[in-house]
Design a protein around this nucleic acid. Structure first.
Ligand SMILES: [Mn+2]
Ligand SMILES: [Mn+2]
Ligand SMILES: [Mn+2]
Ligand SMILES: [Mn+2]
Lengths: 226, 226
DNA sequence: TTAAAATGTTAGACGTATCTAACAAATTAA
DNA sequence: TTAATTTGTTAGATACGTCTAACATTTTAA
């Protein structure tokens, strides 16, 4: 006797990682293509292809051959739930466990898959129902509601504007180590002194009136307001 | 070109769970048999058989057909490292996150597989390098050294003796819920009033001079000293 | 000391997640 | 608008962890 189990709502660790990436990468244009996912997830395109077929069966994505991949409402809910757990974990690691913002992402990648509402509810409670993670990213609430901000990348701010750093668009250690070196952090206000046309680098003046230069690569990963 | 990677020291989540069980179940007699492992891990005997072949190749166990399974020093080190993480996680969940001792085991089963020394070192530090988990089990130190105690099961204590509950030999929720109901906890002193010859049940007198009866099944899972 | 029962192993299968090789479609450039 | 390039799919293979069915060994009971 064989029972085909639907396994509604639940996803394997792998499926969770895929839907999270599908959601994030499709944010900008409403969809994501196979090769982008393959690159992000460090797998080959055929692997993405077969996983998308599976997620389409689960109704987490809409997927037609040779067409872009779109997240469904159901898939979005899944993704936001994992993103919520990831960001709560990161903030917990920084605020409660006193780890550095540059070292928490990799641990949160593992903690986000812990299955226990009690665990996450307590973290949420201990942190006082926080709205942002250590990198300035908004934390979706338990219903999947997430703040939709009007932040811009630092390299898109106007010259002579004073802007506040509110988030980073990358939480990999190498990048955050670099920001730590430059002394840049969330909440800091900086004046955009000059944007080089040639290479896209940006010259800033920080709180301490010290001038510092950052490359385009770095500037586009720093999100600012005002 | 094919590279056979040795993957020294590292184990998959599944392998970690097997070696932990091999270690625990072989504690009493120095070895464990296939059917015991199958029962504990909720898999069928052939599954255990093939996993033991794999662990034998990794030199974590010694395994000859139809003979009991023995842990090697290398396997013991692996097992103790996972047990350490499990128990540190449990204590963290109780002492820092204020969860109940009856609900932390299942979460710790997941947390013990988180790969991050930073994470566990911080937990250890925050807890003040603790020696026991919430169920009274000794926590191996970073070198795998573990306290070897002379605790006995409550049903093996003598009548009229006053003993201190120092640990429980089972940390499943159903059992701990039962202890919570009876008001029994670690550190509590009880007087053994009577041990029934017929069914092995034990009558105790607690701190508040109240008499209470526990079954053999419960008594053999409570560890006492003195 | 044999027969029955319990325990363990082998063979072959399956689902998941991955890959490479070969082919197909869509996009871009000539 | 054809050809080249990029992108995506299919087919078939592999490792892992699991299963069932069949067979083998060891232990226990007659
Ligand atoms: Mn992160
Ligand atoms: Mn983050
Ligand atoms: Mn436990
Ligand atoms: Mn415990």
């Amino acid at each position: 006797m064989l029972f085909l189990i639907e396994n509604e709502g639940m996803g394997s660790l792998t499926e969770e990682n895929y839907i999270k990436s599908v959601y994030s990468l499709s944010q900008a244009t409403g969809e994501v293509i196979v090769s982008e996912l393959a690159k992000k997830l460090q797998v080959k395109p055929p692997t993405v292809n077969s996983m998308m077929k599976k997620l389409a069966l689960k109704k987490w994505v809409v997927y037609a051959p040779y067409k872009g991949i779109k997240v469904t409402d159901k898939g979005k809910k899944e993704a936001l739930s994992i993103i919520r757990r990831h960001r709560l974990a990161e903030l917990f690691l920084v605020n409660v466990m006193k780890l550095g913002w540059e070292e928490v992402h990799d641990i949160a990648e593992q903690l986000e898959h812990v299955e226990s509402n009690r665990f996450y509810d307590r973290i949420d409670e201990m942190l006082g129902y926080p709205k942002f993670d250590p990198h300035g990213e908004p934390i979706p609430d338990a219903n999947g509601k997430i703040l939709n901000d009007k932040r811009i990348a630092l390299n898109q701010a106007k010259e002579n504007a004073t802007v506040k750093i509110v988030a980073v668009a990358d939480d990999k250690k190498s990048f955050l180590d670099h920001l730590n070196d430059k002394g840049l952090k969330i909440g800091e206000k900086v004046l955009i002194k000059r944007k080089e046309a040639y290479d896209g680098s940006v010259v800033l003046i920080n709180k301490a009136k010290v001038e510092l230069m950052i490359t385009h690569q770095v500037a586009e990963r720093i999100l600012v307001e005002e």
